[in-house]
Computed example of a mutant assay.
Amino acid sequence: MWRLVRVGLSLLLLAGCGEATPGLPGTLEWDRITRVAEVSEPVQRWLVAEGERVTAGQPLLTLDPRRLDARLAQAEGELDGARAALAEARQGPRQETIAAARADLARARAAQTLADADYRRSLRLFQRQVLASAELDQALALRDQRRAEADALAARLEELLRGERPERIAAATAAVAAARAHVDDLRVDRERLVVTAPRDGRVDDLPFRPGDQPPAGATLVSLLVGDAPYARFYVPVGRRATLAVGDPVTVHVTGLDTPFAARVESLAREPVFTPYYALAGDDASRLVYLARARLTDAADERLAAGLPVRVELGREP
C-alpha cells in the first residue's frame, strides 16, 4: 500500500512540475476472491489453467483425499457401532439371554437348598458333640455364599425382565448423535478437497503445483470476478472537496490509445499519506485520498490487474 502511495505522490509531483500527461495516478484492478486450504493436504491435480474463464461451482483443483477418506471410514464405523448399541438398548435383552438367566438362577437355588440342608445336618451333629465347630463354621459360610449367589442371579433376571434403564438409552442416543456429527464434519472436509469456484470469473493465480502441500489457510486459487475492472487512484487534497461518489471520470490505461469512461464508486474519508495534523504550508499538497472508479465502457476482460492508469476528473483545476 505505501509503495503505491509513494508512486502516486511521485506522479503527482511530476504533474505539478509540468508533466504533459493529464490526470491522477493509479492502477487498474479487478475484484478478487480467493479460496484457501481448510486442511493441509498435497495438491493432487489442477482442473483449470491460469487465465481460464470459470463458472460458479466449477471444480478448480483437487487435494489428496486419502487421509480424510481413512478418517471418514473410521468415523462411519464408529457411527454404525453406536447405532447398534442404541438399537440393542431399545429392544432389550434377547429371550435366549433371559432363559439362560432363569437357568442360572434355578441352579443357584438348588445349590442354596443343598447348602441349607448340609448346614442343618452339621448343626445337629455339632449339638451331639460329634462334629467340630470348625466344620460347622464351614457349612454356615457355604450356606451364606449360596444364598448370596442366588440373590444376585435373581436381581440380574429382574433387570433383564425390566429392560434397559432410560438413562442408558439416553446415553446411547447421545453417542449416536455425536458420532453422526463427527461423520458430517468429516464429509464437509472431504467435499472441500475439491476446490470449486464460488462465482463466475477468471483464474488469476494458482500458486501451488501438483505435489505441493500448502499449509492450512494458504491461498489455493485466486479469481478475478465482476463484469468490469476499476481504477484505484489517488485524489489530492485540493480536489477532494469537489469530487463525490457517482461523478464521471475518464480512465487512461497505459499502453492503450482509447480511454474508458468510468464512475467513482468509493472515496476515502481519511488520507492515506501523512496525517493532516502533521502537515503545514507546502506539505499540505502531499495529502491524498484513495478512490475507486468502476469502468462503465465495455472493457476487455483480459486487461491485467496492476496496469498503471491516469484518471481525468470531470473538471481539472
Rank of each mutant, 00 (worst) to 15 (best):
250 T>F: 03
212 D>I: 08
142 L>A: 13
78 E>H: 14
14 L>H: 13
266 S>L: 01
139 A>E: 06
170 A>Q: 12
127 Q>P: 06
3 R>P: 05
6 R>I: 01
100 A>S: 12
155 A>C: 01
8 G>N: 07
217 G>W: 12
52 E>Y: 01
233 F>R: 06
61 L>T: 05
16 G>L: 03
232 R>E: 11
196 T>K: 03
125 L>P: 07
128 R>Y: 07
278 A>W: 09
299 A>V: 11
308 P>R: 12
208 F>R: 01
104 D>R: 15
308 P>E: 10
77 G>W: 14
310 R>W: 10
63 L>R: 07
43 V>G: 05
135 E>S: 14
174 A>N: 04
89 A>I: 11
126 F>N: 09
232 R>Y: 01
99 A>H: 08
26 G>V: 09
282 D>Q: 14
253 V>K: 14
127 Q>W: 13
168 R>C: 02
106 A>S: 14
141 A>P: 01
53 R>N: 01
84 A>G: 07
218 A>Y: 06
222 S>Q: 14
143 R>Y: 04
29 E>M: 06
145 Q>W: 04
200 D>K: 04
141 A>Y: 08
45 R>P: 00
14 L>Y: 11
9 L>N: 08
156 R>K: 09
212 D>N: 15
111 A>T: 03
270 E>Q: 13
103 A>M: 07
49 A>Q: 14
41 E>P: 00
245 V>H: 08
88 E>T: 05
165 R>Q: 12
209 R>D: 12
234 Y>F: 15
108 A>R: 15
39 V>W: 09
188 V>H: 10
27 T>P: 00
203 V>C: 02
3 R>T: 04
280 A>M: 02
100 A>F: 08
129 Q>M: 07
99 A>C: 00
213 Q>V: 05
314 G>Q: 10
4 L>F: 04
91 Q>W: 06
157 L>H: 05
23 G>R: 12
82 A>H: 10
182 H>A: 10
104 D>E: 15
238 G>H: 11
123 L>W: 14
71 R>E: 15
292 R>G: 00
182 H>S: 07
200 D>I: 03
119 Y>Q: 09
57 G>V: 07
